[in-house]
Measured scan of single mutants.
Amino acid sequence: GETKIIYHLDGQETPYLVKLPLPAERVTLADFKGVLQRPSYKFFFKSMDDDFGVVKEEISDDNAKLPCFNGRVVSWLVSA
């Protein structure tokens, strides 16, 4: 499998796309960081919350699996 991750960088209009050679349910924050090489950023991901619906959730645990929608991951990188 392959996972497409779209990421928005510090408010830039056009998002970036990276592809990881892993199925979406196995991709972790560490996998994503390894491709990006951007150490001083906070990582937020499109996520579903039972109370609020669609939210941007910050993930900082490198072992955390990334939230996935239709085989895609959507993220926002914010300068720390």
Rank of each mutant, 00 (worst) to 15 (best):
Y16K: 13
T14N: 12
D50N: 11
L36R: 06
Y16I: 15
Y16E: 10
K42E: 04
L22N: 00
Q37H: 12
N63T: 11
D31P: 08
T14L: 08
M48F: 11
F69H: 12
M48I: 11
L9Y: 05
V55F: 14
F52E: 15
T28W: 01
N70C: 07
E13W: 08
L9C: 06
F43Y: 12
F32E: 04
V27H: 04
G11Y: 08
R26C: 11
N63Y: 08
P21W: 03
F44L: 08
P39R: 12
K56V: 14
E57I: 15
K46R: 11
K42P: 02
C68V: 13
F44I: 04
Q37E: 13
G11R: 07
F52V: 13
F43M: 09
S47D: 04
Y41Q: 08
Q37F: 07
S75T: 06
K56C: 14
P23Q: 02
V35I: 10
L17V: 15
I59C: 05
N63A: 10
D51A: 13
A64Y: 01
A64L: 01
T28E: 00
G11I: 00
Y16S: 10
V73S: 04
I6M: 06
S60W: 11
R72W: 14
P23D: 07
G1E: 13
V54C: 13
P67V: 02
G53R: 15
P23S: 07
S40G: 14
L36T: 01
A30T: 02
S60V: 12
E58T: 07
V73M: 02
D51K: 14
Q12M: 13
N70Q: 08
D50H: 10
E58M: 07
R38H: 12
G34D: 15
W76A: 04
E13L: 07
N63M: 07
N63W: 05
T3D: 07
L22F: 06
Q37P: 13
R72M: 14
R38S: 14
F69L: 10
M48A: 15
G1L: 11
D61G: 02
G71R: 01
F44D: 02
I5Y: 00
R26P: 03
F43T: 03
C68D: 04
E2T: 11
Y7S: 01
P21H: 10
N63S: 11
P15G: 07
V73K: 00
L29Q: 00
P15C: 08
Q37R: 11
D49E: 12
D61Q: 11
E57K: 15
D62R: 03
K65L: 12
Y16A: 05
F69S: 10
E58G: 02
Q37S: 12
L9F: 05
I5K: 00
P21G: 05
I6W: 11
V55E: 11
T3L: 02
N70A: 05
D62T: 01
S60D: 09
D31G: 02
T14G: 09
D61A: 05
I6R: 02
T14Q: 14
L20G: 04
E13R: 11
F43V: 04
T14C: 11
D49C: 13
A64E: 09
C68T: 14
A30G: 12
Y41S: 03
A30S: 09
V74N: 06
T3F: 07
A64K: 08
T28G: 05
Y41K: 02
I59V: 08
F44Y: 12
K46E: 15
H8Y: 14
S75G: 09
E2R: 05
V18F: 03
T3E: 04
F52L: 15
I6C: 07
Y7Q: 00
V74I: 13
L77D: 07
P23R: 04
S47L: 13
F44N: 04
A24M: 06
K56S: 06
A80I: 12
S75W: 05
P67C: 00
A24P: 14
E58H: 09
D31C: 08
D50W: 07
D50K: 14
V18A: 09
V55T: 14
A80D: 15
G53V: 12
V78M: 10
M48G: 15
V73W: 05
L17W: 13
S75F: 02
K46L: 10
I59F: 05
F52C: 15
M48Y: 14
L22P: 04
V73I: 14
K19S: 14
Q12G: 14
V74D: 05
L20R: 02
N70W: 04
L17S: 15
A24K: 10
G11S: 09
G71M: 00
L20A: 00
S79T: 10
R72A: 14
D51I: 10
F69N: 08
T14D: 13
P67K: 00
D10N: 06
F52S: 15
Q12R: 12
E13N: 09
V35S: 09
G1A: 11
L20Q: 00
V78K: 11
K33Y: 07
T28M: 05
L9V: 14
S75C: 13
S47Y: 11
S40D: 15
P39F: 00
L17M: 15
W76T: 05
D49M: 08
R26V: 11
Y7R: 01
D50L: 07
D61P: 05
V73P: 01
E2K: 03
F45C: 05
V27W: 00
I6D: 05
D62V: 03
Y7W: 01
W76C: 02
S79W: 03
R38P: 08
D10R: 03
Y41H: 09
M48R: 14
L66T: 02
V74T: 13
E58C: 03
Y16N: 10
L20F: 08
E25I: 04
P23H: 06
E25C: 12
K33I: 00
D10A: 06
V27Y: 04
L20V: 14
F43W: 05
F69A: 05
S47C: 15
W76G: 04
T28N: 03
G53H: 15
V78D: 03
F32K: 00
P39I: 12
I5R: 02
F32N: 00
V55R: 15
T14P: 11
I6E: 14
F69W: 10
L36K: 02
K46A: 13
H8Q: 02
M48K: 13
L77Q: 00
R38V: 12
F32C: 06
V74A: 05
L17G: 07
V18D: 03
F32S: 04
I5N: 00
A24N: 07
W76N: 04
L66W: 05
Q12E: 15
C68L: 13
T28C: 02
E57V: 15
V74P: 00
V54H: 12
I6H: 11
K46D: 12
K42G: 04
L22R: 04
S40E: 12
E25N: 12
L22V: 13
L20T: 01
V74L: 07
S79D: 13
A64S: 08
A64W: 03
I59H: 04
Y16G: 06
